[in-house]
Simulated scan of single mutants.
Amino acid sequence: MQAARIVKIKEPLEIQNLEAPKPKGSQVLIKVESAGVCHSDIHLWDGGYEGPGGQILKTTDRGVKYPLTPGHEVAGVIESMGEEVEGFTKNEKVLVFPWIGEGLCPACRIGEENLCDKPRSLGVYNDGGYAEYVLVPSYKYLAKIPDLDTDISAPLSCSALTAYSAVKNAQLKPNDNVVIVGAGGLGLMGIQLAKAVSGARIIAMDLDDNKLKVAKENGADLVINSKNEDPIKAIMELTGNLGADAVIDFVNASKTVETDMQILRRRARVVLVGLFGGALQLNLVSMPTRAYKLI
Rank of each mutant, 00 (worst) to 15 (best):
G240Q: 11
V94I: 11
N126I: 08
I232E: 02
V178Q: 06
A160C: 05
V32F: 06
R267T: 13
K118F: 15
V28I: 08
A220F: 15
N177F: 14
F250R: 01
I152P: 07
G54M: 04
G182T: 09
Q262F: 01
G36K: 10
P174D: 06
S159T: 15
A35S: 11
M287K: 03
V124Q: 07
E237L: 02
G190R: 02
I224G: 15
R265D: 06
R120P: 13
T59P: 03
Q262W: 02
C158P: 09
K8P: 04
S138Q: 10
K227I: 11
Q192F: 08
N175V: 09
I191G: 12
K144D: 01
L242T: 15
R290N: 09
K31C: 06
A200T: 07
E237I: 06
H39P: 03
A183V: 10
A244Q: 12
T289D: 05
G76N: 07
P137L: 12
G219I: 14
T239A: 01
W99V: 02
T60N: 03
V124R: 04
L115E: 03
T162D: 08
N177G: 02
S34R: 00
T259M: 07
R62F: 13
E258L: 00
K255S: 05
Y133T: 12
K93C: 14
E33P: 10
L161V: 15
